[in-house]
Each structure stands twice: as C-alpha cells, then as structure tokens.
Write a protein that binds this DNA or RNA. Structure first.
Lengths: 143, 143
DNA sequence: ATCACAAATGCAACTATGATGCATTTAATT
DNA sequence: AATTAAATGCATCATAGTTGCATTTGTGAT
C-alpha cells in the first residue's frame, strides 16, 4: 500500500466526519487490494486482530455514508465493495452489473456497464436498480 | 383453496416424484395465496405446526426441482415464490424483474417484464440474469 | 503537550437463520 | 394389510448479525 493510497483513505474518512482509526483504514486497505467484492466471512478472516462486532459496525457506517456498498451473492452472503463514485449518504448509485461466478463464487462489480432502459408496470416507483448476472468468470473459464 | 388448486399442487408434486405430504401442500398453498414472494420468517410463522427444519428441507427440494425460486431482499432475507413457468431441475429461468418495496419490504415478481439485452466484458460467460429494482410499490404509493 | 470528551473499540451475551444426524412416522406400492 | 423408502420431528450445532456496557482512543481546545 502506497503512501498516497493511505492518504486517500484518510481523506475519505475525514470527508465523512469519521475518525481515522486502525480498523477502519485496514478495512479500506483490504477491500481496495482486490478487484472483486469481499465477503463478510473473508473480511472477518482478514481482520483477525479486530473484533467481529467492530467489523460489523465499520461496515454499517461505511455503507450508510456511501463509502462502500453491499451485495448479496447467490448464497445470500453479504459482500462489500468500495463505491467508485456517485454514492452519497443514504443514497447509493449502485446501478451497475454485479457478476457472481458460480465456480469461485467471486462477485465482480462491473461499473462500466450501465443498465439498459426498461419500464415498470403502473403504480411502481423505482428508486434504484441492480442487475445481477451469474455464470463463470474469466479466471475460471481459463482453467 | 379450491379443489382444483389443490389438485394442481398434487399434480406438481407427482411431476417431480415428491410425496404428497401435508407440509408440502401447505407450503404451496401459502405461497400461492399471495401475489408477492413470501419471506422465510413469514413462512415459518404461517407454518406453525410444521417443524422449522422440515420447512427448510421443503424449500430446498422445491428450489432444486424448479418448483419455487429464491430471492434475497434488500436485507438479505430469503424470499420464495412459485415459479410461473420454464423452470426445470437445476436450471431456473429467473430472468425477470424483482421489485423490492422499501416501505413494506414486499418482493414482487414481475414476470411479464423480460430483461433488455446487454453485453458482458470479454471473458465472462453468463448463465442467468436477474434485475432487481427497489422503490415503492402500488399499495404503498396509494397511502 | 495535555486535558476533556465524544466517538470508537472490545467483550459478553443474545437472537435468527440455516444445517446435520438420527429416530420415528407416513405415503405409496404390493 | 404389510413393506419400504421417503419425509418429518427433535436435538444439537454453526454462522451471521445485534445490543448493552465498560474501556480505550482520536481530536479539538486549552
């Protein structure tokens, strides 16, 4: 992790009026070190020295503040990824594709793919959309 | 519940070589009585006389056989709905829109809306899609 | 620098969801 | 009615997530 990356996270916490603590910076470091979302169980394993409850609380505030977003995989397990942009407190812009590999179970946030337009039946008012795809990821297809 | 409906469920169980037992017919009756998906906790409440474990096992076989499909709501709670068509063992065709109301938390399966086409980045092979929308449902909008 | 205080963490305990092993019951077939 | 595989019920366990409270720590003011 570079100096600059670390400063970026500290700045991020400042922005949201959150104290710059070890556990919080570690969560951000762990999540940003991967190109896929991180599951709650994985994260718990990576944060051995941090209390389980603390981790849950960190994930909750980060989500509330729009720093990370939560994705449930095919098994209903919570996965977390750092928001790329546009997210703000209590209003996520999570309108991209989430790809869940059925082999390795990884969750990819494909931010570059915006959702195609479509209509809802009368009476429904939509606030947010997420498209989920399941299948096999590039890594698993190679093998 | 009409005679005909009951027969339909018994036929459904026959089709999949499942014994026509009380608990199974009751699950089907409960789920079909609603126009929305039923959450696991709700279902557990509705099936008071049936053991919790039995319910889980019924839901699992039904899902494996393609009789019902599982949808996770915004809170990660499992919801179940009877498949309308096209589902077969180990291969769901769940390619419709799931609408999760942020007020009443109900999950609607909007089967009539098929998903628009879109492309995946190279290397990804998709098998299934589901589009999730969240917002307010017709019932909650009226109030 | 250090003081004071709110915020964050850690710990204990609890709830809920879901799974597994095994004994008992029941649906289907004869 | 008898047989048997399938299904249910019960006990127990595992994991995810929450709450209350004591302790620690980051931060802003002195």
């Amino acid at each position: 992790m570079t100096e600059i990356t670390n400063n970026r996270f500290e700045h991020l916490l400042d922005l949201h009026h959150l104290k710059k603590t070890g556990p919080r910076l570690k969560v951000l470091a762990m999540m940003s070190a991967k190109n896929t979302a991180t599951s709650q169980p994985d994260l718990e394993g990576l944060m051995e020295d941090v209390d389980r409850v603390t981790l849950y609380r960190i994930l909750n505030v980060f989500e509330e503040k729009g720093i990370i977003h939560k994705i449930f995989d095919l098994n209903g397990t919570a996965n977390y990824a750092i928001c790329t942009s546009n997210c703000q407190e209590h209003h996520h812009h999570d309108e991209h594709l989430h790809f869940n590999c059925t082999v390795c179970n990884k969750v990819y946030c494909l931010n570059d793919l915006s959702l195609p337009a479509f209509n809802l039946p009368p009476g429904f008012k939509a606030e947010g959309f997420t498209l989920y795809a399941s299948g096999t990821c590039p890594q698993c297809n190679k093998k």
